[in-house]
């Protein structure tokens, strides 16, 4: 494992820790998109089916379980926790994610490495992850007062994706026969989705202003 991959995974882990801490400490999920969290739950369940079929490393298995468990915890809090569920921006979080799920699934049926249930679901998870942050970005746009932690959560997630691109470049240069075109293209699309957010995040940080995204 190279330094970019490890750094990317750590950013992903930190993003989730930031979100868990924010919701737990403030007893509020204001500004957090339940739709994005549910999309991530679908992504992780479909991708990590190989937990049952193959063992890669203790690191790999542990991270997969953490991602699954934390995402379901957040969803549980937002839907069912007595105090937290009241703070959910239900009226603002209106992104119709079936318009993401269906096209991604159809694309995975057509464009995959092997036409088997496991492989199609895995490919579906790759495509869906690329667009899973969209409901969260739309919700941030509608939130006037983005709190620091929610902004940091999205920034850490975006950094994780950017670092994965460096990881792919590094692996492509150092490992023979390392190619995964579908993952690369989806990953680049996913990173592009964040560019606009990065611009405003860094600008607000440099000007010492509160983060807000123009509608």
């Amino acid at each position: 494992m190279n330094i970019f991959r490890l750094a990317g995974d750590m950013m992903h882990l930190f993003s989730i820790i930031v979100l868990l801490l924010k919701i737990n400490a403030t007893r509020s999920c204001r500004g957090v998109s339940l739709k994005t969290q549910e999309l991530y739950a679908i992504v992780f369940v479909c991708r990590y089916l190989d937990l049952f079929t193959s063992f890669i490393s203790l690191y790999n298995t542990t991270m997969k379980l953490i991602f699954l468990l934390s995402t379901f915890t957040i969803i549980y809090w937002m839907r069912f926790h007595k105090v937290i569920r009241v703070t959910y921006d239900r009226e603002q979080d209106t992104f119709r994610y079936q318009f993401l799920i269906l096209p991604c699934f159809l694309l995975a049926l057509v464009l995959n490495n092997e036409f088997s249930a496991m492989e199609v679901l895995w490919t579906f998870s790759i495509y869906l992850e690329a667009v899973a942050i969209l409901p969260q970005l739309v919700l941030l746009q509608r939130t006037n007062n983005i709190d620091n932690l929610t902004g940091n959560y999205v920034f850490l997630l975006g950094s994780y994706r950017a670092l994965y691109i460096l990881n792919w470049i590094y692996r492509f240069m150092t490992e023979p026969n390392y190619r995964q075109y579908l993952v690369w293209i989806s990953g680049i699309v996913q990173t592009i989705v964040y560019i606009d957010f990065f611009y405003y995040y860094i600008r607000s940080w440099r000007n010492n202003e509160k983060l807000s995204l123009p509608a």
Binding site: R5, D9, I56, N60, M63, F67, E175, N177, Y178, V183
Partner: peptide, 10 residues
């Protein structure tokens, strides 16, 4: 070949 390699990422 390469298939297992792909799946080692998260």
């Amino acid at each position: 070949p390469g298939q297992e390699l792909v799946k080692d990422e998260l």
